[in-house]
Design a protein around this nucleic acid. Structure first.
Lengths: 105, 105
DNA sequence: ACTTTGCGAAACCATTTAGTTGCGCTTATA
DNA sequence: TATAAGCGCAACTAAATGGTTTCGCAAAGT
């Protein structure tokens, strides 16, 4: 089963989980309490996130904390790079004015 | 059917299509020629991309050119913003958080 | 007009996916 | 030691997805 980051962030629940643990490492149960879903469902999402190295496990006693591998998020940023060049340099003449105005704000 | 950008870029072929037409607007046939797939398959991907406004149609005679809505790509960038803050302020100190939590115990 | 070409849309199939349920392992706690 | 709590994993179901094939429509060329 091929997993990559883009596939991982496609799911809104997973994006929410990512945002959650970005602030603070949490256990599956703690995460589940933030949503209207079961622990097992969360557990599955965490598995997907773990498989593509977006998330790391940290066992503490019988609890398992999950924390975000923030570096992995940079890969998305890296992919965006090619388009950032476009939206920064190649502006259509028609939009030029609009964008310029927005920037000045 | 719920469509959003993240779901759209989850597919590698769609990401490739996006990268293609980012450089230059193209017809479905032209796009299909760049991959090892049929026009219909590309057409389906274009439909998904169109549905979430990542791509725009531009009919020219009997041909339909597809062009990237570069502004829409910025939404991904916007989502990344919250994490960018993290990886800029808290470099390799992922363990910092762990230590803090441990102390609280 | 007739034919060709570029497309979208619908029907269909094989895979994948999200979510639930049940089970068993491991670590706390009484 | 017995019991409860936190988890992962496997099995199962319903729904979604990618891709192909077929059909029909519209624009160009003959």
């Amino acid at each position: 089963m091929r997993r990559d980051i883009f596939q991982a962030i496609a799911d809104p629940t997973r994006r929410a989980i990512i945002a959650l643990i970005a602030v603070q490492a949490m256990t599956p149960n703690a995460i589940a309490e933030h949503f209207e879903t079961t622990r097992q469902a969360v557990s599955k999402h965490l598995r997907v996130l773990t498989e593509c190295d977006l998330v790391k496990q940290e066992p503490r006693g019988r609890e398992i904390y999950y924390l975000l591998e923030i570096d992995k998020m940079k890969e998305i940023d890296k992919w965006l790079e090619q388009f950032r060049k476009i939206w920064e340099t190649r502006y259509g003449q028609l939009d030029q004015l609009l964008i310029t105005l927005k920037k000045k704000k």
